[in-house]
Design a protein around this nucleic acid. Structure first.
Lengths: 176, 176
DNA sequence: ATTATTACGTACCGACTGGTATTTTATTGT
DNA sequence: ACAATAAAATACCAGTCGGTACGTAATAAT
């Protein structure tokens, strides 16, 4: 997971992982079955260890401005995400993934969109959000924008430029 | 160029290119010097054949709304871009590129930001654009958003979802 | 016509990929 | 103590990668 986090998953070979983890290759295959199983396991672990933070932000049910602020901070400032996000990196190379990992990626994506859609619908009933944009459209939009920001960080772009872009992006769904 | 356009450049090998073009590998190496030279040549050709359209839109000096509309249409509707954009695909895998190609990618990126910055500054003097966002920040923002849209198209996402996202994104710099 | 030169492609190089057959090591049963 | 069994690693597989040495065919010079 750390290797996928630091580098591009597509550039980390099974051999490299084995030597990093000081594990023989057959041992890895016994446990994970193959590359697809390993990737899936990494993604599972990453989801419950890192992505949960994003879902927590939404679950707090805070006002829109506060929530967006927290998401912007997470994606563009949190040092934990300085080298990008395993999930979005895998999603970017989706066509290279095995069936299990690809399925998990899609699952996480739709889960995120769903969670944000639910959050926005709740905010709308409280009158905290404009009603000229479909919640699901806005949800997909935010998920993509966070992905863009994290991809930019992975590419080593200047953090303040990443933040500027993301702030501008989220302002689109704040406007009355 | 066509192979890079249809697929991910990282997934197209020199061998595959040679057999597609019905050219021997040494011949390709004689002409282009190697993978880096080939990539650079492809990018050069792509820039003057496709990217020029984007620069043309800016050079028209049309009102902001009209220009943004044209850019949105180009990125999310033009059938020519149905499988994404060679430039953005290469930029996404920048770390895998040789020095010449990487240099050209950065050149094109800064050129695009520059062109859009100049356009926005001109629009501001005409009073056609808000003055609470730095032109360069907005320029970088738009370049990234177009890249996101083209990346989504390359990934096979539904065109109307791509358009929705991009329209929402550009609305951020239109708001008064 | 014959030689010197240039263009060109076959066949190969070492490095690396994901994945496994086979052998060695450790554990268990008696 | 020794045989049977389970576990684990070494050493290998075929395939692909980018890149090139070298033999061959076409051209140019004499």
């Amino acid at each position: 997971m750390q290797a996928y986090w630091d580098d591009d998953p597509a550039d980390v070979s099974i051999n490299a992982i084995c030597s990093m983890a000081e594990v023989s290759k057959p041992a890895l295959y016994r446990v994970f079955g193959g590359e697809d199983g390993l990737n899936r396991a990494v993604l599972d672990r990453y989801a419950e260890q890192v992505l949960v933070d994003i879902f927590d932000i939404l679950a707090r049910g805070a006002p829109l401005e506060e929530t967006l602020e927290a998401l912007v901070h997470f994606a563009s400032e949190d040092p934990k995400m300085a080298t990008g996000c395993v999930f979005y990196k895998m999603r970017a190379g989706k066509h290279r993934l095995g069936p299990m990992t690809r399925g998990r990626v899609e699952e996480i994506y739709t889960g995120a969109v769903e969670a944000f859609t639910t959050y926005l619908e709740a905010r709308r009933t409280v009158g905290d959000w404009r009603d000229d944009v479909a919640p699901r459209t806005a949800a997909r939009y935010v998920v993509e924008q966070i992905g863009l920001a994290l991809t930019q960080r992975a590419a080593g772009e200047a953090p303040n430029q990443v933040r500027d872009t993301l702030k501008l992006a989220v302002s689109a769904i704040q406007a009355t």
